[in-house]
Nucleic acid binder design. Structure first.
Length: 413
DNA sequence: CTTCCACGGGAACACTGGGGTG
DNA sequence: CACCCCAGTGTTCCCGTGGAAG
C-alpha cells in the first residue's frame, strides 16, 4: 500500500465507516410527537375532560394553556387533538382540529386566510378586505354540522397587533348555524391576558391549564424514553443523560433544549467517530448550540441592524461596556455614508438596538447620567472577533473591514 | 431647581404586492 | 388598461418624560 492511494481512499473510507450510533435521530427533534408524554398525564386528562363535550355534540369551553417553552404544551395539545379527531370518527361525531402557529401566521388577514384554506377555499395572499376573508371562512366552516377546535399556538404573538381577531373568533359561534367553534390558546407569556380586551379575556380563558416546568428528574425520564428509540443500545455513557437533564433544568426546565443537547452530543460523537457519547461531548454540544444560534441570528439580520451591531462591536473593542447610543449612532452614520446606504434616524436605531437586546446579542440598560442626560448603556454579550467575522461575510459590509472609528483616544483609566 | 440627552409611545406616511371594477 | 381599495411593514416626525449631576 503506497501512501498516496491510501490517503485518497482514506478520505472516503473514513466517511463510510461511520460508527452509526443513531437508530433514528428524528425522534430527538422537537417536531416529533411521541405516543406517550411522560409527566404530562394530568394536563392530558385536564384537556381531554374539557374537550370531551365535543363528542357529545356540545361546544367545549375555550381553553388557555400557559407554560414556559419546552414544557410540552404544543405536544399535549396536538396529541389530545389527534385523539379527539380519531374518537370522533369512531362515534360518528365530526370533530376537526386545526393547528395554527401564530408566530408564522401573525396577522388577522393571514390567520383567517389560512383557516379558510383549511376548508379548501382559495384566498389570495393579499388584496381582499379582511371581513371578506372572514365571511369566506365562516361560510366554509358552517357548511356542515361539526365541531371545530382551533389551536392557536403562541397566541401572544397575535395579540401584539391588535386583539380584534381574537374578539371576532370568540364571537363567531353567534354567526354560525350548524358548526361550532372552540379555541385553544397556547402561550408562554403568563401576563399576556393583562393587555387583552376584558371580553376576550373572559371568553378565551374560560378554562386554564398550567404547564409547570419539568424538573431534572422528569427531563431525565423524557430523555430516557426518547434515547431508547433514538440511539443504538448502550452507546450512551451513564452520565450523559443526567448531564443533559441538569443543563436543561437550569434553563427553566426546557425539554426541547434537553433533546437538542442530546441530539447534538450524539452528532458530535458520530462525527468524531467515537463508539460512545461521552460527558465531554455534552459540554461541547452545549457550547455549539449557543454559538450556532448566535451565528445564525447575526447572519440573518437585516443590513441596517448589522451596521448598528458593527458600530457597537467597533466601540467595545476599545471601550468595554459603556457605549452610549449617541456614540454608536455617530459611527453608524459614518459607516452608512462610506458604503452608500441611507442612514436611519436615531429614533429607529434605538429600536434596532432594542431588538438586538431582545435577541440576546446585546445588553442594553437605560441609565441616567444626570446632567449629561439619559441614554442606553450598551454592552456586547457575544465575542467581538467572531461577530466581526460573521458580519463581514455580508458583501455590503466588506468595505468596512478596514474602517477605524475616529476618536479612539478616550480611554478611561 | 434646572438642565440635558436620549427613551419610547403614537400618529402619519411611503411603499409593496395584491384584488376588484369600469 | 387605468384606477382605486386593502393589509401589512418599515420608517420618520413629534413630543412628553425620567432622573441624577450640577
Amino acid at each position: 500500500m503506497d501512501n498516496g492511494s491510501k490517503s485518497i481512499k482514506g478520505i472516503f473510507e473514513d466517511m463510510l465507516v461511520v460508527v452509526n450510533i443513531f437508530e433514528n435521530r428524528e425522534v430527538l427533534r422537537s417536531t416529533y410527537t411521541p405516543d406517550h408524554l411522560p409527566h404530562r398525564d394530568d394536563q392530558v386528562k385536564a384537556l381531554a375532560t374539557i374537550l370531551v363535550s365535543a363528542l357529545r355534540g356540545e361546544t367545549p369551553s375555550n381553553v388557555l394553556i400557559y407554560g414556559k417553552t419546552g414544557t410540552g404544551k404544543t405536544a399535549v395539545a396536538k396529541h389530545v387533538g389527534l385523539e379527539l379527531e380519531r374518537t370522533g370518527e369512531i362515534y360518528g361525531v365530526p370533530c376537526i382540529v386545526i393547528y395554527m402557529n401564530c408566530e408564522v401566521v401573525d396577522t388577522q388577514y393571514r390567520l383567517l386566510a389560512s383557516l379558510a384554506r383549511h376548508f379548501d377555499k382559495e384566498i389570495p395572499m393579499t388584496g381582499w378586505p379582511t371581513d371578506q376573508v372572514y365571511t369566506e371562512f365562516k361560510n366554509a366552516i358552517d357548511k356542515d354540522k361539526r365541531i371545530a377546535i382551533i389551536i392557536l399556538d403562541e397566541v401572544d404573538k397575535l395579540v401584539s397587533k391588535g386583539d380584534d381577531i381574537l374578539y371576532n373568533l370568540t364571537r363567531i359561534n353567534a354567526d354560525l348555524k350548524k358548526a361550532k367553534v372552540s379555541l385553544i390558546g397556547i402561550t408562554n407569556d403568563l401576563k399576556f391576558t393583562e393587555f387583552l380586551d376584558p371580553r376576550v379575556k373572559s371568553s378565551l380563558g374560560e378554562e386554564e391549564i398550567i404547564f409547570p416546568p419539568y424538573d431534572a428528574n422528569q427531563i431525565r425520564d423524557i430523555l430516557h424514553q426518547r434515547a431508547e428509540m433514538a440511539f443504538k443500545s448502550s452507546v450512551l455513557e451513564e452520565t450523559v443523560i443526567p448531564l443533559c437533564a441538569a443543563y436543561a433544568a437550569q434553563e427553566h426546565g426546557d425539554a426541547r433544549r434537553a433533546l437538542d443537547l442530546l441530539r447534538v452530543s450524539g452528532e458530535l460523537a458520530e462525527r468524531a467517530k467515537a463508539q460512545k457519547v461521552t460527558e465531554s461531548q455534552v459540554k461541547q454540544a452545549q457550547e455549539k448550540i449557543e454559538t450556532d444560534r448566535v451565528v445564525e441570528v447575526v447572519k440573518t439580520l437585516p443590513t441596517q441592524s448589522k451596521l448598528v451591531l458593527l458600530s457597537t462591536v467597533h466601540l467595545s473593542n476599545n471601550g468595554g461596556c459603556n457605549i452610549t447610543t449617541g456614540e454608536a449612532y455617530n459611527i453608524y452614520k459614518n459607516m452608512c455614508r462610506l458604503i452608500g446606504i441611507d442612514t436611519l434616524t436615531q429614533r429607529r436605531v434605538t429600536d434596532l438596538i432594542s431588538e438586538l437586546d431582545m435577541l440576546g446579542i446585546l445588553n442594553a440598560t437605560i441609565v441616567s447620567k444626570g446632567r449629561y442626560g439619559r441614554t442606553k448603556e450598551i454592552c456586547l454579550s457575544v465575542p467581538t472577533d467572531s461577530t466581526r467575522r460573521v458580519l463581514f461575510e455580508d458583501y455590503r459590509l466588506k468595505p468596512l473591514e478596514t474602517y477605524n472609528p475616529p476618536g479612539q483616544m478616550k480611554l478611561y483609566g
